[in-house]
Structures are given as C-alpha cells and as structure tokens.
Computed example of a mutant assay.
Amino acid sequence: MSDHQMQSEIAELNSELEDMDDPREAYAKVLARIRHYRQAGMSVPHDLALIEKRLMTECMAASQGRD
C-alpha cells in the first residue's frame, strides 16, 4: 500500500469518526484498523496512531464524566 493510499484511507476513516457520537465506538474502529495494518505486516501510520491516542483520551474523559 502506498503512502498516498494510506493517507486517503486515514482521511476517510477520520471523516467516519467525526460522524460518530460514541467515542468508544470510534476507538474500537480505529483499533480494528490498527490491527489490520499489524496483521498485514505493515507499520501503523503515524496519523492513525495520533487518532488512536486522541480517542483513548476522549474515552477516558467520558468514563470519568468529563465529556
């Protein structure tokens, strides 16, 4: 997969995530995508790792009633 394809895929995923109301659902979707990259033997794109960290923070805040 080329860098352009990865960036396009991440942009599409990010657009989908913006439409989701539940950060846990979005986080699960991102983790599935990360798992896909790892299973294919590819490194996880930096932008996807950043999205994962942001969503993890949002999930933690929501679980503590700080959303």
Results as ranks from 00 to 15, higher is better:
Asp3Thr: 07
Asp3Asn: 14
His4Ser: 15
His4Met: 13
Gln5Tyr: 15
Gln5Ile: 15
Gln5Ser: 15
Gln5His: 13
Gln5Thr: 12
Met6His: 12
Gln7Asp: 15
Ser8Ala: 15
Ser8Lys: 10
Ser8Leu: 14
Ser8Pro: 03
Glu9Thr: 08
Glu9Cys: 08
Glu9Phe: 04
Glu9His: 11
Ile10Lys: 01
Ile10His: 03
Ile10Phe: 00
Ile10Asn: 05
Ala11Arg: 13
Ala11Tyr: 00
Ala11Leu: 08
Glu12Lys: 12
Glu12Pro: 01
Glu12Gly: 01
Glu12Arg: 05
Glu12Ser: 07
Glu12Gln: 08
Glu12Leu: 08
Leu13Tyr: 04
Asn14Tyr: 06
Asn14Trp: 02
Ser15Gln: 08
Glu16Cys: 12
Glu16Ile: 04
Glu16Lys: 10
Glu16Thr: 02
Glu16Phe: 04
Glu16Gln: 14
Leu17Arg: 01
Leu17His: 03
Leu17Cys: 04
Leu17Glu: 01
Glu18Pro: 03
Asp19Tyr: 08
Asp19Phe: 11
Asp19Pro: 00
Asp19Arg: 13
Met20Val: 03
Asp21Ser: 10
Asp22Gly: 00
Asp22Ala: 01
Pro23Ala: 07
Pro23Asn: 05
Arg24Asp: 07
Arg24Gly: 03
Arg24Ile: 02
Arg24Trp: 03
Arg24Glu: 05
Glu25Met: 11
Glu25Arg: 07
Glu25Asp: 15
Glu25Pro: 00
Glu25Tyr: 10
Glu25Cys: 00
Glu25Asn: 10
Ala26Asp: 09
Ala26Tyr: 03
Ala26Lys: 05
Tyr27Asp: 01
Tyr27Leu: 12
Ala28Thr: 09
Ala28Pro: 11
Lys29Glu: 15
Lys29Met: 14
Lys29Ala: 06
Lys29Ile: 07
Val30His: 02
Val30Ala: 09
Val30Met: 02
Val30Leu: 01
Leu31Lys: 10
Leu31Ile: 07
Leu31Cys: 08
Ala32Trp: 08
Arg33Phe: 05
Arg33Gly: 02
Arg33Asn: 07
Arg33Thr: 13
Ile34Tyr: 01
Ile34Ser: 02
Arg35His: 11
Arg35Met: 09
His36Glu: 14
His36Asp: 13
His36Arg: 13
His36Asn: 14
His36Thr: 10
Tyr37Trp: 10
Tyr37Cys: 10
Arg38Gln: 15
Arg38Ile: 12
Arg38Val: 14
Arg38Glu: 12
Gln39Arg: 14
Gln39Pro: 04
Ala40Thr: 11
Gly41Met: 11
Gly41Val: 09
Met42Phe: 15
Met42Asp: 13
Met42Gln: 15
Met42Asn: 13
Ser43Cys: 00
Ser43Gly: 10
Val44Cys: 02
Val44Met: 11
Val44Glu: 03
Pro45Cys: 04
Pro45Ile: 09
Pro45Ser: 11
Pro45Glu: 00
Pro45Gln: 09
